[in-house]
Design a binder for these strands. Structure first.
Length: 492
RNA sequence: GGCGCGUUCGUCUAGUGGUCUAGGACGCCGCCCUCUCAAGGCGGAGAUCACGGGUUCGACCCCCGUACGCGCUACCA
């Protein structure tokens, strides 16, 4: 088998679509699995769609996901340049070859004529509106005359009618088209730029691409590409058309129905490991029950033969779950680094009282992490789910107050406060013994103290075991909070 | 409209003619654990395998048709 070279060839729209990520990922996995090369090529042949900074965004999103390419803009490579807008001369050269062969021809038709033609064909109920090859019969001298007179032109593919165009696709097996349904596609636009169809074929050949792995939306135009390969006498790459990513209503995944850019998910706090893992499973599986994957495991197990044919709905619930799974698998040290960044980006960095939060020692944060690790799905939830580790509660969960803070509670808390006061640098067990003792003295269940205590110390009704909370915030802070709760809650 | 592609639990999927009265995962529900919330364990509901014809002793798996969905139908990619 000849060496594997694949490419991800996005148009620079300004951001990386998750569908694009999936396409890029499958290309990447296939390349790595087969010791091949992964090339990034930017398809920027539409000057009307130029977006400032789009290429940089694309590259940084790709890199964030861990998809490093072997050749591409910035990176370079032997078969560049990798920006199609810098390859115009190349297309000019190759299109001439086609014109000489008669497989492409100049067309001087105006927009008006094209428009009228289409209208007429529709009126006559043609099965499909197609160019009528009007300019194919232009004499050589006429063409030269037009060219000399600078009449705007395009160059079209000369599709020979009544032919079967057949190609193989790894995902869809054999696909067959009738050339009568293939239009004389514009190859070179009047501004001199190539269309996607032409540039993509020329570049894939010149860049020695072995496998074209792309979205299903390209399946219908593949016959045009095949015609081009054949006309040049170039070997066709192996095609693999990937199923589409869908909205919950099964339409093509779009901005209207939620986030669609990789950077959106990044901003929301999703881990790249989770996003990549999730997206990999949308349309592929190894045939077993494994669902949790790291990148190296994906590479090891990936194969195009196991890619599905039908579209997959992007289900955020499952992404959430995978994010939690990946987060829990992180080491506490990694989590510490992430938590610090989260704190830096939180309200604490601007709040005057936030200073001490920023300066919390590693040892403290590490304790918070062990206590909360099983209870968070996102790093930011360390702050939102257990704010009490960072600041004393300023309000108390209403339903918990109603349920746990009875008229006798303040006195009981006072008693507990006094018991705790006798402790000296208590560990978890000391707090527990002290509380149970107090409960016994008061002749009540430990729960009658535990729940109000949790409320007093955290302001909420959920979280790690109370004693864990107490140890982390410390005896002094515990007492302060009990005291504050007694005063504040009774006032309500 | 034409052409192409697709169709297994709500969602992602396993399944390549008998092992399928269809398996797993997410989500949902219940139980256990338990000071709460998670995590974990156990269990449950949930798919007449889009529908209709064939082929076959036998079809989720093969063939044909229909329906529905999606894609393409640009001097956009």
């Amino acid at each position: 088998m000849k060496s594997v070279r694949v490419r991800f060839a996005p148009s620079p729209t300004g951001y990386l679509h998750v569908g694009g990520l999936r396409t890029a990922l499958y290309n990447y996995l296939f390349a790595r699995k087969n010791n091949g090369k992964f090339v990034l090529r930017i398809e920027d042949t539409d000057r009307n769609r130029f977006v400032e900074g789009a290429v940089e965004n694309l590259i940084s999103a790709l890199k964030w996901c861990g998809l490093d390419f072997d050749e591409g803009p910035e990176t370079g490579g032997k078969l560049g340049p990798y920006l199609q807008s810098q390859r115009l001369g190349i297309y000019q050269k190759y299109i001439q070859e086609l014109v000489v062969k008669g497989d492409a021809y100049y067309c001087f038709c105006t927009h008006e004529r094209l428009e009228a033609l289409k209208e007429e064909q529709q009126k006559q109920k043609f099965p499909q509106a197609k160019y009528d090859k009007h300019c194919l019969s232009l004499s050589k001298s006429r063409i030269e005359e037009n060219l000399a007179n600078r009449i705007p032109f395009v160059i079209r593919l000369n599709v020979v009618p009544n032919q079967k165009i057949i190609f193989d696709d790894i995902v869809r097996s054999r696909v067959e088209f009738d050339s009568n349904n293939v239009d004389d596609q514009v190859l070179i636009k009047s501004d001199g730029y190539p269309t996607y169809h032409f540039a993509n074929v020329v570049d894939d050949h010149l860049m020695e691409i072995s496998h074209v792995i792309r979205g299903e939306e390209w399946l219908s135009s593949t016959p045009k590409h095949v015609l081009l390969y054949d006309s040049f006498g170039w070997e066709r790459p192996i095609f693999a058309h990937l199923p589409l990513l869908l909205n919950p209503d099964r339409s093509k995944l779009s901005k209207r129905q939620g986030d669609v850019a990789v950077e959106d998910y990044r901003a929301k706090g999703f881990l790249k490991e989770a996003l990549v893992n999730f997206v990999a499973l949308l349309g592929w599986n190894a045939g077993d029950d494994k669902e949790f994957y790291y990148m190296n495991e994906l590479i090891e197990n990936f194969s195009l033969e196991r890619v599905n044919k039908s579209g997959a709905v992007f289900d955020i619930e499952k992404l959430n779950w995978l994010n939690a799974e990946h987060l829990r698998k992180k080491s506490n040290d990694d989590l510490l680094t992430m938590l610090r960044i989260e704190i830096l980006n939180s309200q604490f960095s601007t709040l005057p009282t936030g200073r001490q939060v920023l300066n919390l020692p590693d040892a403290y944060l590490l304790k918070v992490i062990s206590a909360m690790k099983e209870r968070v799905s996102f790093v930011k939830e360390y702050l939102s789910n257990s704010p009490y580790f960072f600041e004393a509660p300023s309000k108390y969960d209403e339903s918990s107050v109603l349920k746990n803070w009875k008229s006798e509670t303040p006195d009981q808390m006072k008693k507990l406060y006094e018991s705790f006061a006798k402790l000296n640098t208590p560990v978890k067990e000391d707090f527990e013994a002290s509380l149970k003792e107090t409960a016994a003295e008061l002749n009540i269940d430990a729960g009658k103290l535990i729940h109000p205590l949790r409320l007093a110390v955290s302001g909420m009704s959920s979280g790690p075991g109370v004693y864990d909370i107490l140890v982390i915030i410390g005896l002094e802070e515990t007492q302060k909070r009990i005291d504050k709760a007694i005063n504040t809650i009774s006032v309500i």
